[in-house]
Every structure is written in C-alpha cells, then in structure tokens.
Simulated assay, not measured.
Amino acid sequence: MTDALTAAVGVAALVLAAWCGHAFFRDQPTKDWHFIGMAVVTLLVLVQLVIGFVLLGRGEEPRDGTAIFVAYLFGAAAAVPAAGFLSLSERTRWGSATVAAGAVVLAVLEVRLFDIWGGGSGG
C-alpha cells in the first residue's frame, strides 16, 4: 500500500471532519459543498481500494493478513458514504456531526490500514 496515498486519505478525512464539525458548531446541516467534499474523499478511498487489490493481485501480501486488510479496505470505502447518507435523513446540525464522526472513523481506519499493510515497510 502506498504510504503517501494512505496519508492523503487520512488528512483529507480529517479536513472533512473539521469542516463538518465547524458546520455542527455553527448549527448548520450538511450542504452541497460538504457533499462535494465527501465525494472527493470517497474518490481517494476508491483509488486506494483499487490500488490495494492491484497489489494483492501482484502477489504482495499485507503483514497482518489478507482477509483483515480487505475488510478494512471495504470499511474505509463505506465510512464516508454511509455517514453522508445518514446526514441526508438528519437535516439538522446532527447531520454535520454524523459526517464529521464518519470522517474521523475513516482517519482511524487509515492508520489501521497502514499498520496492517506493514507500517511503512511496504512502500
């Protein structure tokens, strides 16, 4: 797994969390711009998903096992879209809080993916 991409996804997730957290504190629901941000973060995660499967297809193996790595890849890919869909049903400040929480979850999943792959030893 590329460390740079994992870091980029983690940072993008934290930026999204801060942005939606700011909306929460300003008593605002998620807006169109937030959904564009969610789309950008999701696109990065989907690129990561594809690269992860390409690396697995080339015969590379994560340090902590393929099954757990694939499970975390799919969990990471689902975190922000799931929070986004939930925020659509909660058109109050709590929708923004939901997206912020989902983005923090994604950042934590990225740290775990980094560890599962090999923690910096896998380029």
Rank of each mutant, 00 (worst) to 15 (best):
S121K: 11
V40L: 10
L16I: 07
L5M: 13
A13S: 13
R63N: 13
G118S: 05
V80L: 03
A79I: 00
P62D: 13
Y72Q: 09
L14V: 14
A77W: 02
G37Q: 03
E60L: 14
T6G: 05
G59R: 09
V45G: 08
F74L: 15
P62N: 07
H22T: 15
F25I: 15
G123P: 08
G84I: 03
V41S: 05
K31M: 02
V11T: 15
A18H: 14
L43Y: 14
L16T: 09
W94V: 04
F74N: 04
A78H: 00
L43N: 11
I68Y: 01
A77C: 08
L86F: 09
A67D: 10
V54C: 11
A12W: 00
Q28H: 14
S89W: 10
I116F: 00
R58K: 03
A17R: 08
T66L: 05
G57M: 12
V111D: 14
F24T: 07
L46Y: 12
A82S: 06
A23V: 06
L43R: 09
R58C: 04
A107G: 15
V111Q: 14
L14H: 10
P29T: 05
L88I: 05
T98K: 01
H22P: 03
H22Q: 15
A78G: 03
F114G: 05
R58H: 03
C20I: 04
A12P: 07
F114H: 04
